[in-house]
C-alpha cells in the first residue's frame, strides 16, 4: 500500500517536472520567441501581441504558474496559425494516434513475445540465431525509410493496400476501411519495438528456463507446452511487461515518422506541421500529451507487474 502511494507520488512529481521542461522548451528558442514565430518582417505591434499571448512579458516563475494553472484547467493555449484552441486541435488527433499506436502495440505483442519465446526454447539453434539476427537488424531500421519502402512496393507498385490517411477520402468506409488503412502504418510503427521486444523476451525467457523450478516441473513429467506457455510465460511476464511499457516510448516517438510518411492525421503529423510553421504552443502541448501518455503507460505497466507477481516486488532482470 505504501509502495503504491510512493509510486503515485513520484508519478505526480515526474508529471510536474515534465510540464516544467515543456514550459522551458519555449525559453530554449534562440533570441526572441515572438520574432522566431513571426519571422523577420514582423511589426512591433504584432510582436507585442504574440508576446502577450505567450505570456512572455511576465517574470518566468509567474509564467510557469500561469502555464501550470492553465494545464490544470485543461487550457493548453491557443494555436498561432490556426484560429483554434490547442486542445480542440489536438484531442481528435491524439485519438487517431492512440488508434495507430494501439494497433502497432498489438502487433508487437502478438509477434514479438512468441518469437522471443520460441528463440529461447531453441537457444543457440538455427531458428534462434537467424531470428535474433533479423531482429537486431530490424531494431536498426530507420522507420521513415521502411515506411517509404512499404509505400513504394506494396502501395504504389502492387497497389495492395492504401498508403495514406485513415479512411478512403472519396468513399469513406467504416471499420473495414480503417483496418485497411491501418495495416501498413501499424506494421511500420511496430517494426523496431517488435524487434527489441523479441530480443528481450528471448533473454528473459532464457533466464527463466534455467531456473531450478523449471527442472522440478520437467522432473514432474509436465508437458513442454505447459512448461513453456503456462509456467515459463507466467514467470517471464512481469519483466516483459516492464520492457513493453518502456518500448511504448519508442513507439510513441516512431509514430511521428510513420504519421508523416503515411499521412495519418494524428498528433505526430500535427507536430510536424506545427514545427514547420513554428506554432510553438501546439508543439509544446503535443510534446506534453505524448510524454504524459508515456508516463501513464508505465504506471499501468508497473501496476500490472504488481498484480502479476505474487512476490509483488521482484528485481527486473531484463
Amino acid at each position: 500500500m505504501i509502495a503504491v502511494l510512493r509510486r503515485l507520488g513520484s508519478t505526480v512529481l515526474v508529471l510536474l517536472g515534465v510540464s516544467l521542461i515543456v514550459f522551458l522548451l519555449l525559453q530554449l528558442v534562440p533570441g526572441d520567441p515572438a520574432r522566431a514565430v513571426l519571422g523577420a518582417g514582423a511589426t512591433q505591434e504584432s510582436l507585442a501581441a504574440v508576446r502577450a499571448q505567450l505570456g512572455l512579458d511576465k517574470p518566468l516563475a509567474v509564467q510557469f504558474l500561469d502555464y501550470l494553472g492553465g494545464l490544470l484547467r485543461g487550457d493548453f493555449g491557443r494555436s498561432l496559425t490556426v484560429n483554434q484552441d490547442v486542445s480542440q486541435l489536438l484531442l481528435p488527433r491524439l485519438e487517431n494516434t492512440l488508434v495507430l499506436t494501439g494497433a502497432a502495440l498489438l502487433v508487437c505483442l502478438v509477434v514479438g513475445i512468441p518469437l522471443g519465446i520460441l528463440a529461447a526454447r531453441h537457444q543457440y539453434g538455427l531458428f534462434d540465431r537467424i531470428s535474433m539476427f533479423v531482429a537486431l537488424a530490424g531494431a536498426c531500421v530507420p522507420v521513415y525509410w521502411f515506411g517509404l519502402v512499404l509505400v513504394g512496393v506494396l502501395g504504389l507498385s502492387l497497389d495492395l493496400l492504401p498508403t495514406s490517411g485513415m479512411y478512403n477520402s472519396r468513399n469513406p468506409g467504416g471499420f473495414e476501411d480503417l483496418l485497411a488503412h491501418l495495416v501498413l502504418p501499424a506494421f511500420t510503427a511496430a517494426l523496431v519495438p517488435l524487434a527489441v521486444i523479441a530480443r528481450m523476451s528471448r533473454s528473459v525467457f532464457v533466464d527463466v528456463l534455467q531456473q531450478d523450478y523449471i527442472r522440478t516441473l520437467r522432473a514432474s513429467g509436465l508437458s513442454e507446452a505447459s512448461i513453456l506457455w503456462r509456467h515459463g510465460l507466467r514467470n517471464a511476464l512481469p519483466p516483459i511487461v516492464n520492457i513493453v511499457g518502456l518500448q511504448v516510448g519508442y513507439l510513441l516517438g516512431g509514430v511521428i515518422f510513420v504519421e508523416v510518411v503515411f499521412g495519418w492525421p494524428g498528433l505526430g503529423q500535427q507536430l510536424y506541421t506545427s514545427i514547420t510553421q513554428r506554432d510553438l504552443p501546439v508543439v509544446q502541448a503535443g510534446v506534453l500529451f505524448v510524454a504524459v501518455a508515456f508516463v501513464l503507460v508505465n504506471l499501468l505497466a508497473d501496476a500490472a507487474v504488481g498484480v502479476l507477481d505474487p512476490r509483488s516486488r521482484r528485481a527486473v532482470r531484463a
Binding site: 531456473q211 531450478d212 523450478y213 527442472r215 522440478t216 509456467h231 502479476l308 505474487p310 512476490r311
Partner: peptide
C-alpha cells in the same frame, strides 16, 4: 532437487 529455495515455481 538441489536447491529447495528455488525449486518451486514462485508464480503458482
Amino acid at each position: 532437487s538441489q536447491n529447495a529455495l528455488s525449486a518451486l515455481d514462485p508464480s503458482f
